[in-house]
Every structure is written in C-alpha cells, then in structure tokens.
Nucleic acid binder design. Structure first.
Ligand SMILES: [Mn+2]
Ligand SMILES: [Mn+2]
Ligand SMILES: [Zn+2]
Ligand SMILES: [Zn+2]
Lengths: 139, 139
DNA sequence: TTCCTTATTGCAACTTTTTACAGTAGTATG
DNA sequence: CATACTACTGTAAAAAGTTGCAATAAGGAA
C-alpha cells in the first residue's frame, strides 16, 4: 500500500493531489499487473479503504487516464478496463475465444505518420484494440 | 419503415429472423445516417414501435453488429454507438473538442498485413477509433 | 502551526445496461 | 392452412455507471 505513495510526484506534476482513495486505487492496479474493470478496482480497493465509493473510483480512473498515469482499453461491447501506464503497446483480441495478445507500437509508426499528415490530427499513440480471429479459431 | 423490410434477406442469410422490433431499429438507423447510441435508438424506435423494450434494443444491436449488418464504434469512456454497415472506414476523434473525422481503410492495409503475419491473427478490418488532437486544438 | 484555496470526496438520486427465464411468434415444412 | 421448431421478446430485478451539490481535506503560503 505504501508503494503507491511513489506516484505522488507524478500526480502533483499534473496538478492532482494524492489522497488515500487514490493510494488504494493505484495500489490495486500496481499489484494486479494487468487490466482491471472499474468494478474490479472498486471491489479490491474497498478492502484497503472500505469507505471508498463508486463515483470516486470511476472519476479517479478517468482522471488518472487523462493525465496518462493509467491506460484505458476498450475491449468490446462498451467494456472498459484500466492498467498502469508503462510500456507503449496495443492489443489484438480474438472475438471467438477472447484470447488477447500485446503488440509493440513500433509497426504502427508509419501508419500514424501517414494519418497525421493526411488529417492534420496529432495522434496520441496509445493502447488501441483490434479484433480478429486467433490462429486456433480460424479453422 | 417499410424500407427496412429490405434487410430481411440479409438477416435470413445469417440465420436471423425479421421482426417488427428489428424493422423499427433498422429503420431508425437507416434514416439517421450516422452513429447512434443504444439509448437514442431506443427512444426513436419506440416512436414507431411503442412496446419495444431496452433489452431487445441492446440485444438486437449486438446481434446485428456481430452479423455485420451494423458497425459498432467505441467513442471513449466506454461509450458505444452503432451505424448501418456500409463503407469500410475508421475514425479519428479529438479528445479536446470531440471533432470526429473518417478515414478510409486503404492506408491501414499494410499494417494489417504486418500484424497478421506477426501474430497469426486474422484481423477483421472494421471501424477502429483513434484519439488525438485536431489541428485546431493543437495550439 | 495555522490559514486559505480549491481539488476531491460522499451522498442520494438517477440513468443506463445486463441477466434469467417464461411466454410469444417467425418461418419452414407438409 | 396447420404444425413444430426454436429464435426472439418482454418482464422483473439487479448491476453498473452517472450527476449535482454540499462537506471535506490536500498542500502551499504565511
Ligand atoms: Mn494493455
Ligand atoms: Mn463510422
Ligand atoms: Zn480465438
Ligand atoms: Zn479538437
């Protein structure tokens, strides 16, 4: 739990404050080592900080994602999950069996540059989800 | 409203049935000419078929998207919208001002091929959303 | 330490989305 | 037509996510 205090400087740098609620939420995500849904975060973080409420969890996850401390991923049907922002990557999900794999950002760079010069948008290159059939499910 | 009957063969080909509920939903999407949220579809389709219920709308939108009659788009924060599946395209959304533009699939083809040979996944190349800053919001 | 500013939280009410299951109604077939 | 099969729908209830607002508490300054 104290490990989460290490995020205080990053928060402060973004104009955010460190609170026990945010400590609990960051701690949960820190130890999960993967993607968690808001509900999962809520249930687990409550164990460490029982008075935590849902609105706080949803707001915190959104705020921390906006400030790039977390990554949000859309995993289909409007489901959203979060993880600590560490390596830059994207996801491929099999919509037959659900198997998910990560891919580095590197192969995307060319496309991103093309899109940027084509549209004038400056893309933030983060955490896009693609769907398809994994090798097992293609037969 | 009767225009929606034209989708019956496509439904049938996928093992689905044409019902008055689906007629109403397809009709709404057909005349909207853009992306609608499930709630918007529900409210509008009720005008044409007042006994329509929410579970039917959510199920129908998912089913029709799965069978490729509709496209689902994740537009951030777990929000999802649907449109009739016509041209193949993707979206760029400005997360400052919300301005959304379409881009053709063509420039994605090379990347998709790379990812497929890299991962063994067969990607379905549909309707991905990217976020960034539009030209106006970059200053 | 104390004070001040304002970011953050909890509360209460609300909206949206999901679930399980029993009843209904497309549609193919004779 | 009449029948049978089963995809589809509505109901009722729960779960998940959202909103506005008043009270609280970080954390910088005095
Ligand atoms: Mn990830
Ligand atoms: Mn679209
Ligand atoms: Zn698979
Ligand atoms: Zn913009």
């Amino acid at each position: 739990m104290t490990c989460a205090i290490n995020y205080a400087p990053q928060l402060r740098a973004q104009g955010l404050r460190m609170t026990p609620q945010r400590m609990a939420i960051l701690h949960v995500l820190h130890h999960a080592g993967g993607h968690l849904s808001p509900t999962q975060v809520y249930k687990q973080a409550r164990k460490e900080f029982p008075s935590l409420t849902e609105p706080t969890v949803y707001r915190t996850l959104e705020d921390l994602a906006e400030k790039k401390l977390l990554l949000a991923a859309h995993i289909g049907n409007g489901k959203i999950v979060y993880e600590l922002a560490e390596g830059q990557h994207h996801h491929l999900i099999c919509h037959q069996c659900g198997k998910t794999i990560q891919v580095e950002h590197t192969p995307f760079k060319t496309l991103y540059r093309q899109l940027e010069s084509l549209t004038g948008y400056k893309l933030d290159s983060s955490h896009v989800t693609f769907f398809g059939l994994c090798s097992d499910c293609q037969s």
